[in-house]
Write a protein that binds this DNA or RNA. Sequence first.
DNA 1: GTCTATACTCTGATAGAC
DNA 2: GTCTATCAGAGTATAGAC
Lengths: 221, 221
Amino acid sequence: MARRIGSSGAQTADSLAKAALRLFARHGYAAVSMRMIAREVGVQPGALYNHVGSKQDLLRDLMIGHMTEAMKAFRAQPLPEDPAAALEAFTRFHVRFHIDRADAVFISYMELRSLEPENFRAVERLRQEYEGILRGILERGARAGVMHAPDPPVAARAIISMLTGVTHWFREGGRLTARQIEDIYTDMVARSVSARPAADGASAPDDTPKDTERTACSTQA
Amino acid sequence: MARRIGSSGAQTADSLAKAALRLFARHGYAAVSMRMIAREVGVQPGALYNHVGSKQDLLRDLMIGHMTEAMKAFRAQPLPEDPAAALEAFTRFHVRFHIDRADAVFISYMELRSLEPENFRAVERLRQEYEGILRGILERGARAGVMHAPDPPVAARAIISMLTGVTHWFREGGRLTARQIEDIYTDMVARSVSARPAADGASAPDDTPKDTERTACSTQA
DNA sequence: GTCTATACTCTGATAGAC
DNA sequence: GTCTATCAGAGTATAGAC
C-alpha cells in the first residue's frame, strides 16, 4: 500500500487511460485484453488493478469522462438566441470537438452495448442530455418558422449521426483540413433543416405531420 | 461425412447464420463466443464447424452476403436520370432496405475492424462501390447545377452516416412507422444538398471550394 | 506501486465414436 | 451431422513478496 521511492503511480494511471482509449477505439472493448493494455503501458497485467477496479470500470470512466467534458465545453461557450446561429454553433462545436477526440467519440458511440446496465444508464442519461440541446434548437427554429423540422427528435438524431460519422474516416493530414470539414458539415446541416424546400420539392412532408400511420408508443433510445 | 437419416443440416446452417447475425449485432463479434451461438442454435459447439470453417468465416460471409444483396437489390430497380429523383430513389432505398435488416447493417458498419486484412479488403471494396453510387448522383447533380455539393465524397459519406444511423434507434412499433422515417430522411437529404441556400446563408462554402488550406494527400477510407 | 505467480473460467478449434 | 471429450492458450482478477 505504501508508496515506494521511485514509483510513479500518477504517470502509470495516465498512460493506462491513454492506452485503453487507443486500444478500445481501435479494436473494440471486447477484443482488447488487460494483457494488451498492460503490454502497452509497460507493466505486468496485475499492476493495472492498482489504478482501476476492473476493465468495465475503465470503459465507464472513459465514456463518462468524455461525455461530461463535451457537455462542459459546450456550455462554456454562449449559445446564440437566434436558432440558425445556435444550430451553426452546435454543429461547429460538435465537429471540432469530436475531430480532436476521434477515439473517445468512437468509443462513446460504439461501446454503449459493452456497458453493464447501471453504467449504461449513467452514460445514456448524458447522451440524451446532449441530444436534447440540439433537439431544443430545432424546436425553437421550427416554432419561429425559420427551420423546417417536421420531427425534431428524429432530425436531431439524424444530424448527430451525420456529424459523428466524420470520426469514421477523417484523418489528420488528409485531403481536407478539419476546418474545411467543419464548413462542409455546417453547410449541410443548415440546409437539411432549411425552411426553403429542396429544388423541386419532390416529396417533402408537411411541417404538420399527418396523423395517418402514426402508432402509439414512443420512440425509444 | 455421410449424412445420416434424421439429420437436418440445411436447417442448422440457416439457424446458425441467423443466430450469429443476431448475436454479433447485439453484443459485437468479439464478445460473442461459438459456444453462445451453439447454445442459441441448439447444438454442441463442435457441431458448428460442420457448417462454417471458423468464426471469422462466419462474419465475413454475413457481411459480404449483406453487401452484395444490397448492391443487387439497388441495381434491380431503375435509377432515374434526373439527379434529384435519383437521390430520392437512393435515399428511400437505403432507408427501407436497412430498416428491414438492422442487424446486418449494424454489423457491416461496426465490425469492419473485426475482419482479417484479406476479408476487410473484400468488404471494403463493396462498401466503396455502394458509396460510389451516391457520390455519382451528387456529382451529376452538382454539374447540372441542381444540387449544392461542394465536396461530393464528403457529402456522400455524411449522408450515408446519417441514413445508417437510423438502425441505432429505430424499432418496429415505435412512435413512427418505417414509411414516416423514410419520408423524413428523404426530405432532409434532399435539403442537405439543395441548390437553394439555407435561410440566412450563414456560412455556406462556395460550390467551387477555395484552394486555401488544402493539403496534399487523398481522403482515405 | 510493481512484481511474480496463480486461480479459475472461457476461448476457438479438433478428433473420433456413432 | 451431431455428439463427447479434449487441447492449448488466453481471459479477468487476486495474493503476497518486495
